[in-house]
Each structure stands twice: as C-alpha cells, then as structure tokens.
Design a protein around this nucleic acid. Structure first.
Lengths: 204, 204, 204, 204
DNA sequence: GATGAATGAGTGTTCATTCAT
DNA sequence: CATGAATGAACACTCATTCAT
C-alpha cells in the first residue's frame, strides 16, 4: 500500500519535472501535452492519471515552489545584518538553482496569468518582501541601517537576485552556476551592505 | 506620394500600439488577432496588409523598444558617477513607463522565444550592461569606486530596475508611477552609490 | 444589410439540415463535427461561425421542431370529433414527414439527455397531450365520447402516431410516405373513433 | 466443472445488469466502461473476461430481451379476441416493466445502430407484429373484426404500448407502474376492441 | 482469474491566415 | 485598400482496450 503510494508520487514528480523542463524551454502556452509526455517518456493519456489538466501541471509547479520557499523563510537567522543578508541571498540563489526550470516557468506565466499571479504574489513574493522589509525597517530604527525607504530598497534587492535567473545561460555569464555561488553571494552582500549602512568605511 | 506613406506609417503604428496593449493585457500567446483588430478598430484581415503575421507584430514591438533604448544609450553624460547613475536610472524608468505595455510583453516573450531573446539580448540588454559595466570598471581603476566584480554588480543594478516593472500594479506599490519617479530615482541612487564607493560617510 | 442576413440565415439552415441528416443516420453522439461539415460541404471551423458548439446544433434542431409544432397546435378546428381527430393526425404525420431527420434525432436524444427531455417534454409533448386530452374529456362530458380514462387513451393515440416514425424505412412498410398519407389518416381515424364513441354502429 | 460454469454465468449476468442500468441512466454512448465496472463492483479489465467489448454488452442485452419476448410469443391463447388482446397487452407491459432498463437502452440504440436495428427488427418487432396482424386478419375474415388495414392498425396498437415506456417517469403519469397495470390493460383493451369490432354497443 | 495503470487513436474546438468581394 | 467569411491544421482531453503483475 505505502509502496504503491510512493511509486505513484515518484511518477507524479517525474511528470512534473518533465513538464517544468518543457515549459521552461518553450513557455507554457507553446508547450504541448504531447511534448511533455514525450519528455517524460510516457503516453499523453498517462499524464491525466496524475494531473487534472494542463493548467494543473502549472499550478502544481507553482505549489511546489511555494513549498520550497516557505521552508526557506523560516531559516534566516536573527541577529547581525550581514549574516542575515548573506543567508537570504544564499538561500534564494540556491533555491532558484535547484528549481531552475520551475522558477523560469513561473516567472514567465505569472506575468500573463492573473490567477496565478495573485496566488504567487500572496504566498511567495509578499512574504519574502515583508520579511526583508521588516528587517530593514527594524535596522533603520535601531540605527544599524541608514535612513532609507525600505519598501523601495527591498524591491531593489529582490530584483537584483531575480534578474540573475534571467541571465541564466546567456553568453555573458551564468551567475546561478553552483561553482560561482559563493562569489556571487559575497559580492552582492558587500554591495548591498555598503548601501544599507551609514558607511563607516567597512569593507569585506 | 509621401502623403500616402505617412498615412500608411501612421496606421501601422496604430495597429502596433493596439497589439502592444492587447499583448500586455493577455500575453502574446493568449491574445488573438481578432482582439488586436478590434482594439485597433479595423478588420482582422487588414492587419496583414501592414504586418506579415502575428509574430511580426511581436518583433516590431521589440524593434521599437530597441530604437527607444538606443536613443537613451547615447545620452548618459560623462563625468561624475552620481549624475551618471541618476541619469541612467531616470532614463530607464522613464522609458519603461512610457512603453510599459511593450516592455511587459517583451519581458515575458523573451523568456520563451529563442530568436527574440537573441535579438533583444544583443541589441538591448548587452549594450546597456556593457555601458554600465565599463563605467564601473573605469571607476574602479580610477579609485572612484571600491574594488568589486563589475559584472555581477552591473546585473544587480539592472535587475533592481527591471523588477520594479514586474511590481507594477501590485497592491504594495506601483513604483513606475510618474509622480513617484523622482523619489524612486533618488532612493536607488543613494542605495547604489553607497554600495559602490569606499564609503567615506558621504550622503545627501 | 437584409441581404446579408438572409444569406446568413440560409447558410445556417443548410448546416442545421446537414447536421440533422448526419445525426439521424449515426446518432448525435456517434456523429462527428467533421462529418457534419462534410455533409454541408464546408470546413469544420465554419460550423462554429453559425453555432456555438455541437450541442447547440442539437438544441437548434429541437427549437426548430418546437416552432413547427407550435404552429400546428393553433390549427385543429373546434366542432365535430371526427374532423378534429383527422386533422390532428394529418398535421402530425405531415410535420413528421417534412422534418423526418429532425424528429428521428430528437426522439433518440430525448431519451438520454435529461435537459433536452425536459425542454421537449414541456414545450412539445405536454401541450400536444393536453390539447388532445382536453378535447376527449370534453367529449366524454358531452356524451359524445364513451366514458374512458382520457389520460391513458391520449397516450395510446399519440404513441400510435409516433411509432409510425420508427417504422420509417423498414421493409414491412413506410407509413410516412406521402402517397400513403391519406390512407393512413383514414384508417387511424376510423380505428380511433370507433374506440372513442359509444359504438352506435358508425363506420367510414 | 459445471460449478465453475455456473459461477461464470452468474458473474456475466451481474455485469450485464450493471451495464443495462448504467446504459439506461446515461445512454449507451455516454456511459463509460469504468462506470459499468464501478456499478458491477469490479475492475474495468474484468469486463473483458466476460465480453468482447462495449458493443458486445449492448448486443447481449438485446439478446436477452429477444429471449424474453420469444417466450411470450408462444403463450397468447387461441380463441376469443378480447382475451387475446388483453393477454398480449398484459404480457408486453409486464415484460417491459421487468426489463425496463434493457428496453430503454435498446429503443434508443436501435434507432442509430444499423446492425442492432436489423437484429431487433427481425427477431423481435417483426414476429410480434406478424402474430398480431395475423390474428386481426383472421378476425376480419371471420367477421369477428370490422374490415380494416391490419398492417396499419397493428402498428398503431404496438406503438400505443411502446409509447407508454417513453412516458415512464414523466410527471403526467407513469403507466408502467405495477399497481396501475390492470387499469391500463383494461382501458387499452376496451379502447382497441371498440375500434376493432363492428360496434354493436358491447362494453364491460 | 482479477486487476488497474498505461496506452493512443479520435473528438470538439480554436484561431492564424487567406482571398473573393 | 479594406473586409470578414471561410479555412484547416493543431491542440487538450477522453476512454475503450490491453497486458504485466
């Protein structure tokens, strides 16, 4: 019984990953169920034994990302600003790298699918922004961070990270590559921190 | 004769703008030629007198943006870093705001359309990145900017700006609104500059 | 303008009749839109310029019959029982013959399609039954008709007529053929009348 | 060994009855094998151990009805016309009531399935019609029945009975209900007989 | 024998594109 | 030039049937 369920879940995940790859390659709309099936090495009809319809594939991809990110949100440590930022960046980059196709698909579809946008906005973007913004605001009030519009700066930071995903695979450099992660995290941390502090002359 | 051409060009632009609006609303794939025609107040067949096919509409939208951005690239002044950054930000934000529907469409399609990505990458993203990166690199060598990986930081800056577009219309704030532009430019300039300089305690 | 509309209506009817023929031949479910299109000599997509979907074809067929029958219901003359019955039979047989494919389709689908059954039941069957039953009941009270259960006898009469449709095309005889209509009407009128009257020995 | 066969036959019948119920509910085409299996409390694949395919289910249902009716045909007594008619009606109504789901399915499918129509026509409808028609013809020649077109009148009688099946479940009355059977048989017998005889004033 | 996961042919429907008017 | 009716290829999805377990 449990064996049956485990096999089923494994199959489900294999299909979901195949779908994410195809969607990432051609976009959700351009991708056909036939293609997804081929990528998963099964017949088209089989997909429907695990998912209601094409849209369910997309929503399930979103759901999976939501879960991943939710897990990350608990982690960022209290305390010093620098490790907070560094951890935040590392977590986000790692999550994006591990779920790259999923993330690409979502970033694309979120812009044209109203319902999906709302869902993702509420359950992923808003919490992440809120967490970072709260930390910055607290820092400002504690004098740890120079006076600034936390709302704008928060988006600037998140945007900087997200944009790296878009550059994935481009000739100018793939900054999501695992071997470059430490370098990228260090560089961004320095860049951001210097901008967030009253600038005492500190440097990594 | 030239009168004929002017009329033709005017109509072409009207169709292109209608297409951009519809594409921005529903996404390129979900939009139908019938809808574009309705938005432009003409019959579906008429579109094909001005554009080869649906894809040509998209490419023409991209082409138009390329032109806009090309015009911006000439302008950024030599000299001080702060006005350079501020001008860069203001120009980008303004361009995005003025061509918001076009930009949205493109950002979406660029992720799934290989040819479009290459075109946009080569003619828009790369030049912008290169210009900024070169200026940073020069600043580093002149001691004006602290030592940093210009390649990474450049992308962080561009990403921060682009992300604001994605947040357009969200409840947390629309940072592309015209009346907020000065505020946003100032805030980002401060944020970036502080991160780019040895941090002597400078601040406006 | 009126010319346009007339052409459109003509086209619509041609498609509807083609659909009725195909549906009558293979049944609604087994029939494919491709087949209907072929029967009408057009492309599949064209059907959708005139009807919302396959079901709309079926409902439109029903609607057309409803209209036809509605027109008949006004006609049966007051007065003598014999001409009343004879007219009723003649009208029904003629209507069935003229709309044979439509009737066949409906009789079939009405048995498996709940919504269609309700619609047809309410707007066609019930009125016809009611009209006949009321006349019989009146006849009973006037002593013109022998005492009987008008509800049951009404259904027996309608059933007798409907069944002739089912026998259409069978080797044992096609009683809907135009040249046999007078004979059939006379025979059924005699048969029914004799059963409805106190049996004074009357005969045609 | 015979024990095995008995078990097999029993299971076959259970499936057939489940199929008849589902077919009666949703129509043959709309019904799915999955549904039939669920109704029978078995797995879809199991059906194919007892029947070749979906169509075989339908044909087997027809076959079963053919057997039922065949048994009835032997019974109608020689002798008086009134008991002959009454028995015929009672038998038919009872048979229909007992096999209501089967009959409904068949009536529907017979209209669109050429092969099924032929089979049912030859083995069920034709014999029943022939038996009744022969009796009427004999009655005419014996002066027991008034001169009439036996072919037409026969169909009118059968049609009257069949139509009652169609009206099953309608708000105006379900004349196949067991408790109403005697009333219906009496009423129809009177109705028909009065129409078949020279009308001497006879009546119960 | 029984199962039910897997199959893939077939269906209704959409929509970019054409072309006669 | 402009139209919009007509086209038909392509797609998501269903379901009868098979077969490894």
């Amino acid at each position: 019984m449990a064996w049956r369920d485990a096999f089923r879940e494994q199959r489900r995940m294999a299909i979901l990953e195949a779908a994410a790859r195809v969607f990432a390659r051609k976009g959700y709309q351009r991708a056909t169920m036939r293609e997804v099936a081929a990528e998963a090495g099964i017949a088209p009809g089989t997909i429907y034994l695990y998912f209601h319809n094409k849209r369910d594939l997309l929503l399930s991809i979103a759901e999976r990302l939501v879960g991943e990110i939710g897990r990350l949100l608990v982690q960022p440590p209290e305390g010093e600003l620098r490790p907070f930022i560094a951890t935040l960046l590392r977590n986000q980059l790692e999550m994006m790298r591990r779920n790259r196709p999923f993330t690409r698909v979502l970033l694309t579809e979120v812009m044209t699918d109203e319902a999906l946008r709302r869902q993702y906005q509420e359950r992923v973007v808003a919490p992440v922004l809120a967490q970072l913004e709260a930390r910055l605001q607290a820092g400002v009030e504690a004098g740890e961070v120079r006076p600034l519009n936390a709302s704008i700066v928060t988006r600037a930071i998140v945007g900087a990270v997200v944009f790296l995903l878009l550059s994935a695979g481009e000739p100018l450099g793939d900054f999501l590559a695992e071997e470059r992660q430490d370098e990228v995290v260090a560089e961004l941390t320095d860049f951001f921190l210097c901008g967030l502090q009253p600038c005492k002359g500190e440097e990594g």
